[in-house]
């Protein structure tokens, strides 16, 4: 799904990267407030939904080439963070929806998470969720 369609679904405000939204194709979503989890679970063409607004989220995004970041619960990062993202061509959006609801909206719209797993009730490639070991 194009990032512009996601921006509309979440009724999100664009902080930077407006010119990129029409072109960027998002394959999967990661919702997390833990930087190590973001680094370890995301794959290519991932969009991050997060409540973290400090500069390190942009550093992490740069390391793994995220398609963009959506800040949830109306949290706005500082101008320094927006500038860092602009320099790195990472689009930033803000939605008023909390993390759970934002993820739900995008999941309903057909976007998968980064695990590649889904519960047996949905999707074609359904598998039972693995039990914690």
């Amino acid at each position: 799904m194009k990032l512009i369609a996601i921006q509309k679904l979440l009724n999100a405000t664009i902080l930077t990267g407006k010119e990129l939204l029409d072109h960027l194709e998002v394959k999967m979503i990661c919702g997390s407030d833990l930087i190590s989890d973001v680094l370890s679970f995301t794959k290519e063409r991932s969009l991050l939904l997060t409540g973290l607004t400090n500069p390190q989220i942009i550093r992490a995004a740069e390391m793994i080439d995220l398609c963009g970041i959506v800040f949830v619960r109306g949290k706005r990062p500082g101008d320094d963070v927006i500038r860092m993202a602009r320099e790195r061509k990472i689009p930033l959006l803000v939605t008023e929806l909390p993390l759970f609801e934002s993820c739900g909206v995008l999941y309903n719209a057909g976007l998968p998470g980064c695990s590649g797993l889904s519960l047996a009730t949905g999707g074609d490639k359904s598998v039972a969720a693995p039990r914690p070991s």
């Binding site: 190590s36 370890s40 390190q56």
Partner: peptide
């Protein structure tokens, strides 16, 4: 508070 401290850094490095 900045999103660190999950205790996953060294395991990530190993991986």
């Amino acid at each position: 508070a900045m999103g660190f401290g999950a205790g996953m850094g060294l395991p990530n490095i190993k991986k």
